[in-house]
Design a protein around this nucleic acid. Structure first.
Lengths: 128, 128
DNA sequence: TCTTGCCTTGAAGTCCACTCGAGGGTTTAT
DNA sequence: ATAAACCCTCGAGTGGACTTCAAGGCAAGA
């Protein structure tokens, strides 16, 4: 699958796909005879994983670290595991922060709903 | 309360507090006789709200827009309400993305747990 | 064969949200 | 009364993550 098709399939620009590969977030992508990128299902999986992590705010540096460990083979399994655990915990913290912000907005919105109701009411009885 | 105390209380640098005020994320803070910032409880509340929203990734531009509407008074109530609703919905979308990433990491971690178990086992019976 | 369009690289540019430094006034402690 | 530790403003600098640009190679259709 060429770069444009992958770009469309995952909603990531070709520039970003090349950038991810250049800095080492994803391992070197398979090339065809003319040197064009030809993403295998495994390459695609890296893209998908990266997109998922980036959407969640995992930093480029962390992803580079993970990919580097991955390419170093079996002896890095324990390191990869703790890296992933750490990121999962960070994600959970972030989820909690987002939920707190959402709840705070909902609290404010309750106040607005009331004020809007008062505005409506005032159309009918001009009490103030 | 002076800027340093607020900085400590909310874990936001003094530079950032000044920056937020400068660009209009929070309204002008009360000053003392020598022109130093002296945060009232209401000023603090703006800081706290801003910190909560920034932690959740709400952009500076959106916060400026909200504060501007706020300072324009009652006639912007409806606009503020829809701005807040939109942000709440965005936060929910982001929460969903983070949860998806977290779940994906947990899936990967299940795989790692297995491999680690195999490594342990191989210490005792060298079957491969 | 010429054109259109996608592909390549490397370097430079952009955007966001701070963060820092310079230069200067104020308050507090000795 | 003078040094240390605050505070102020303004403008420039930084870091992360792209994004665009420049210059050129290859490929399929008219």
């Amino acid at each position: 699958m060429n770069i444009q098709a992958v770009s469309k399939k995952y909603g990531v620009s070709s520039d970003t796909l090349r950038y991810w590969e250049r800095v080492g977030v994803i391992p070197p992508v398979t090339r065809n005879a003319s040197g064009y990128r030809d993403y295998t299902p495994e390459d695609e999986n890296w893209v998908h994983f990266t997109q998922c992590m980036r959407n969640a705010g995992v930093s480029i540096d962390i992803l580079i670290e993970y990919t580097t460990l991955m390419m170093e083979g079996k002896q890095t399994i324990a390191a990869r595991q703790s890296l992933l655990e750490e990121q999962r915990d960070k994600l959970q913290d972030q989820i909690d922060k987002l939920a707190a912000a959402r709840d705070r907005l909902n609290g404010k919105l309750d106040g607005y709903a009331e004020r809007m109701a008062n505005l409506d009411e005032s159309k009918y009885r001009k009490t103030k």
